[in-house]
């Protein structure tokens, strides 16, 4: 398959940031109260992701390895601010509803994660498509969660009432607790799918190294420290014995604590 198409497919389907990698959970939960917010946040992030991916890829041979993370942050923060101005000038209603979450795109793990794991190793063209793919994947994730929450929590989609009048909206879904519940069910469904698949194939389940998005989110950005995606997640090799996702997760978090301690010891002052 053509490499560019592969990048797109990877971002939208196989490594979808929301549904598969579980990255960028903070904005996912905060802005998906309505479908339109979801799509707005998704597209804004996409634009920034494409731009920063291209820029970082173009500069990958210039940026010294030791200061690469601060350099990435500066680049991402600049693009975020630029996009923020543009939104303020040309899309004020979206700007108002996304509020403080626009500047917080800077600390969105997807962007730094892609910079570190893809853009810094590949050429501009492919990095651009990686950005498009990941961005669209994120947008699709946010929009579908937004549609779900808005439909059942408010009885509307994209602001249009579509539920019959007799429908009593489950308001809790668009409130803060609803975000947690929706996400919990989403991950549970995902676990279920993986589990069934693994059972059918009758083989040990392989843990996606970036499955526990939040933890990876914590670490990808850790300021020039020697964390990589693999070391952050704790599991480098696939678990050798058969285990359920629950067990594997438990195993992994054990490793993670150990890993953090190891890294701490290794770090130079």
């Amino acid at each position: 398959m053509n490499e560019t198409v592969k990048r797109l497919k990877c971002g939208i389907v196989t490594e979808n940031p929301t549904f598969v990698q579980m990255l960028g959970m903070c904005p996912t939960m905060a802005v998906t109260t309505s479908a339109i917010n979801g799509i707005g946040m998704g597209l804004t992030t996409t634009v920034i992701l494409i731009l920063s991916n291209m820029m970082i890829s173009a500069l990958r041979k210039v940026i010294p390895d030791k200061v690469r993370i601060p350099a990435y942050i500066v680049i991402v923060a600049s693009f975020v601010t630029i996009v923020q101005f543009l939104l303020e000038g040309f899309g004020p209603s979206l700007y108002d509803s996304l509020g403080i979450y626009i500047p917080l795109i800077v600390v969105n793990c997807i962007i730094l994660g892609r910079a570190e794991s893809y853009a810094s190793k590949n050429n501009v063209w492919l990095s651009m498509f990686d950005g498009i793919g990941m961005g669209l994947g994120f947008t699709i994730g946010l929009t579908s969660i937004g549609i779900f929450r808005e439909l059942f929590g408010n009885g509307s989609i994209f602001g249009k009432n579509i539920m019959p009048d007799s429908y009593q909206p489950v308001s809790i879904l668009i409130l803060a607790p609803g975000a947690f519940f929706v996400l919990a069910c989403l991950i549970a469904v995902q676990n279920k799918v993986k589990l069934t698949k693994a059972r059918k194939a009758g083989e040990a389940i392989s843990i996606c190294e970036r499955e526990d998005g939040c933890a990876s989110c914590t670490n990808t950005l850790c300021m020039g420290k020697s964390y990589t995606m693999e070391s952050v997640m704790g599991i480098k090799e696939k678990p050798d014995k058969k285990m359920t996702v629950g067990e594997a997760l438990k195993e992994k978090s054990k490793d993670k604590v150990k890993e953090a301690e190891d890294n701490d010891r290794e770090r130079e002052v």
């Binding site: 109260t33 309505s34 917010n37 108002d96 509803s97 509020g99 808005e150 929590g153 408010n154 909206p169 308001s171 668009i174 409130l175």
Partner: peptide
């Protein structure tokens, strides 16, 4: 002009 209350409420 500017309002950011909880959606739906």
């Amino acid at each position: 002009l500017s309002i950011s209350e909880t959606a739906g409420l």
